[in-house]
Amino acid sequence: MNATKQEMIEKLRRDLLDWEGFRPLAPEEQPFFGLGPIEQAFPNRVFPTGALHEFISTRPEFTAAIGGFIAGVLQTLLEKGGVCVWVSYTRRIYPPALKRFGISPDRIIFIDVAREKDVLWVTEEALKCSGIAAVICETRLLSFMESRRLQLAIEQSRVTGFILRKDAKILNTTACTARWTVKPLRSRLRPGMPGVGYPRWQVELLKVKNGQPGSWILEWKNNSFLHPQQEQMVQPDTQRHYA
């Protein structure tokens, strides 16, 4: 009896996700993002592709960190080919830097619109096009209705969308699957070594549908994400191995 109840709840959970327009890929199709513990926070324990992710930034430094994080995720999304569209109103992204995150900058199509209100129109058009791997949209405002429109477009096309909200003053409710902030942290080096280390961020998942919000520390090293806690856990093991 207990088991059947558990099964029923599981089934209801899956149905709920389905009704909300979130259809996970089959496990063998699921790309590997290497986000480690962060992926545990999501339903089905996979980073949701074909969903809308919202990133909140209040300072240009945070925007840079978010840019790095998105680029790291994009690397996996672009592995299977395809292009990425980057829509923005005031763009400062420096394409050559993306190479460090494993993306060839010539595979991104940048659309710089002159009017702010056109950003969401272009984003919606791009999200409707299933031939695109990912759409990144830099905007300031995103109302609930607009986010709902984007979400509906995504449910048809299964494109992954990233909304980068610069200078977000008011955090209104949106239909996005997840809301993130990424803040830079002081990089770590071996004791006594001068200079600046690898990018290191405090990644916070403020909201996630059917998942567990949380906060993690993440590093970018040698073209992949690195989780410092994980590293510490692994370290004693290797030492023992060599001892």
Partner: peptide, 29 residues
């Protein structure tokens, strides 16, 4: 699999966008 930048589908999207925001606003590096 996923089409490249010059595929028909993406080209059609860019036509639409170009018609609204201007063709010179779309670029690659």
């Amino acid at each position: 699999g996923k089409p490249a930048a010059d595929s028909e589908e993406v080209a059609e999207l860019l036509d639409n966008v170009g018609a609204r925001v201007g063709k010179d606003q779309i670029h690659r590096y």
